[in-house]
């Protein structure tokens, strides 16, 4: 039985009829065509599917689209402002925080929440903030560097 959902994704409102079992990640990828959000596991470990639901980082493979009815969702595609990358994206580029790039969207979206709530995190705080995001390429060091670099840039922009 299909259920009507209405939700905002990256500022655009979408209304669809969905099967209750449709995972939020498949709604984003297969229904809306927003394929920047990836699926990396099936047990809620890897975080590649992380998006922001009402500002909170959520594993969209561990969430049904029906649960997001009425929600405001932000995905990696909605992060940059036109040509200008978000400071976290920019920092990943500068600090070589990605290799194959598959975990990157989820990693970046998690860090959006981490840095919003903690504008000047220690290295340990960054590492614990991304404990639910697995990366097999980078060994995390440059991701941590990028996060702290982005935090500094975001602080400077606000000052």
């Amino acid at each position: 039985m299909a259920h009507a959902v209405r939700l905002t994704v990256n500022g655009t409102t979408h209304a669809h009829e969905v099967e209750p079992r449709l995972l939020l990640v498949h709604f984003l990828r297969d229904v809306l065509g927003l394929t920047g959000t990836h699926v990396g596991c099936d047990t809620s470990q890897c975080g590649a599917c992380t998006v922001l639901v009402d500002g909170a980082a959520v594993k969209s493979c561990t969430s049904f689209a029906v649960q997001a009815d009425g929600a405001d969702i932000r995905t990696i595609e909605g992060l940059a402002t036109g040509e200008a990358l978000h400071p976290i994206q920019q920092a990943f580029w500068e600090k070589h925080g990605l290799q194959c790039g598959f975990c990157t969207p989820g990693m970046v979206m998690t860090l959006v929440q981490v840095l919003e709530r903690n504008p000047d995190p220690t290295e340990a705080e960054v590492r614990s903030g991304i404990a639910g995001n697995l990366c097999r390429c980078t060994g995390y060091e440059n991701i941590v560097e990028a996060a702290r670099h982005a935090a500094a840039a975001m602080r400077a922009a606000r000052a």
Binding site: R29, G36, E77, A80, Q89, E94, H96, F102, T104
Partner: peptide
């Protein structure tokens, strides 16, 4: 030189094209 990678921007924007992204 530690040149920034040409690969990165589209991956950072979620514009990569992995097989499962294709339709």
């Amino acid at each position: 030189r530690p040149l920034r990678r040409f690969e990165d921007e589209r991956l950072l924007r979620g514009e990569g094209s992995f097989v499962d992204d294709m339709r």
